[in-house]
């Protein structure tokens, strides 16, 4: 009998909603109560430093290229020792969708996401974060990592001098 089945189905639905009527809401009243997001939550972006305190970013533009909404822009500069850095670095948080692709693309672990989700403002220009606003004093989620101790040009050790590195290959020596 389909009628009986239909009535049973409707009663089941009514019973389910009845139970939920007395359940504690899952949502919380936001500004009074705040949830602590998990540490890997993707919100406000920071630029971190290596354990020695140097800027990690090498202005390679990979984050900027990975960004689907094109909200990262920078200008690369170079020090005397060949070490690259960002002359300026800007993230437009009014466009950022917090997808985390920039952090994934970064080879030096410079750009990282933090759980600070309360980013909003009535003044849209204040959401334009410059390098000074982005750069923090810590290492973020990778406390040990220093890119130049594993690869790259001789900033910390001479080229190829890092423990897990091979000395540079003499390309001329490969000529048969």
């Amino acid at each position: 009998m389909s009628v009986v089945k239909d009535i049973a189905a409707v009663s089941q639905g009514m019973w389910a909603t009845w139970k939920h009527l007395f359940r504690k809401p899952l949502t919380i009243p936001y500004p009074e109560q705040k949830r602590t997001p998990p540490p890997r939550y993707r919100a406000r972006i920071v630029l971190t430093r290596d354990p020695q305190g140097g800027e990690r970013c090498v202005a390679c533009y990979l984050c900027s290229a990975a960004c689907p909404v094109d909200c990262i822009s920078m200008q690369a500069g170079e020090r005397e020792n060949g070490r690259r850095y960002a002359e300026w670095f800007r993230i437009n948080f009014s466009r950022c969708i917090f997808c985390g692709l920039c952090a994934e693309a970064c080879p030096t672990m410079a750009i990282q996401m933090t759980p600070d989700y309360e980013l909003c403002s009535r003044d849209i220009m204040s959401l334009l974060y410059e390098k000074e606003d982005l750069l923090i004093d810590g290492c973020g989620k990778e406390p040990e990592y220093n890119f130049y101790r594993h690869a790259g040009i001789g900033v910390v050790n001479p080229r190829g001098g890092n423990p897990d590195e091979q000395p540079p290959v003499d390309v001329r020596g490969l000529v048969p």
Binding site: L21, F22, R23, P25, L26, T27
Partner: peptide, 13 residues
Amino acid sequence: RMLAWIQDRQGPN
């Protein structure tokens, strides 16, 4: 409010 409770929300408060 009741619809909100049914949906495990708070509703206008």
